[in-house]
């Protein structure tokens, strides 16, 4: 069989060129999707802002007002910054499913570029906190983070991050498996009933340490076996009554049963 004149049809460097194109394409796409976090300081393109304004008018304005000035049903968003939008919309809390003690986490309602567009528009209304630099979202010292967490966060979120009750049906959510940007955003913007932890209070490096601690807990499961929801003595007490004592009582009944 005659060989195809392959060498004549394709340049010897074609494979390398293809590889390079592929790398650039995937790298570019990656940068496009994750680059939002570093794009805080860059000026957003006008088209994105316009898009954000339209999305806001369609989905948010009924409560927050057409120019985000706030209504009786929702607060003003002037000056909340892009980071607050990223947190509220990016965790699914906004738009709210219904009015209640507090907005609850639910499946995210928008694509990331739509969230970015709304964030960009809200950020044009007045200066406010923008997305953090990527270097504050990973790395960090777990033990310093753990200590800061105990001092600043544990009284509401529980020392193991299991969450806790607040007044009037409000609650501090559990902190397992949360996107680092959202942990950072929560500290900076103080959503719902959470106080704001400004950079004067907890520096960006310290925020990074807290994120590192929470991520460490996500990645390293419970060392002692089932953690029973990390709820402490209540679940342990229920477990001992139901399973340990319950099991042993079943055994006593078995031991004293008359044979058939």
């Amino acid at each position: 069989m005659a060989t195809y004149p392959r060498r004549g049809r394709r340049h010897p460097l074609a494979a390398i060129a293809l590889l390079l194109i592929g790398l650039f394409a995937s790298g570019g796409a990656y940068a496009l999707f994750t680059g939002t976090a570093t794009a805080a300081d860059t000026v957003p393109p006008a088209a994105q802002v316009e898009n954000g304004k339209a999305l806001f008018a369609a989905n948010c304005a009924s409560c927050h007002g057409l120019s985000a000035e706030g209504t009786a049903a929702g607060p003003s968003l002037v000056g909340v910054g892009a980071l607050a939008v990223e947190f509220q919309v990016g965790t699914g809390r906004m738009p709210m499913a219904g009015s209640g003690p507090q907005a609850e986490k639910k499946p995210v309602q928008f694509a990331q570029d739509e969230i970015d567009a709304m964030a960009a528009w809200v950020a044009t209304l007045a200066p406010g906190p923008g997305l953090p630099d990527n270097r504050f979202l990973s790395g960090g010292n777990e033990s310093n983070g753990a200590e800061l967490f105990r001092v600043n966060c544990a009284m509401c979120h529980n020392v193991a991050g299991a969450g806790g009750a607040l007044t009037e049906g409000k609650f501090a959510p559990n902190l397992h498996d949360i996107d680092p940007v959202h942990i950072y955003a929560a500290m900076v913007t103080g959503p719902q009933n959470m106080p704001v932890f400004s950079d004067m209070n907890i520096t960006p490096e310290e925020k990074r340490d807290i994120i590192a601690y929470l991520k460490w807990m996500d990645e390293n499961g419970s060392v002692g076996g089932l953690d029973l929801g990390a709820l402490g003595p209540v679940s342990e007490g229920l477990f001992v009554w139901i399973f340990a004592l319950g099991g042993l009582v079943a055994i006593t009944i078995w031991l004293t049963a008359k044979s058939n």
């Binding site: 529980n158 003595p233 342990e236 007490g237």
Partner: peptide, 16 residues
């Protein structure tokens, strides 16, 4: 974490 009189955790309970 170690005991320190300032932090009080949410959901602090004694044994049953």
């Amino acid at each position: 974490g170690p005991y320190d009189p300032s932090p009080v955790s949410a959901g602090t309970q004694p044994d049953w």
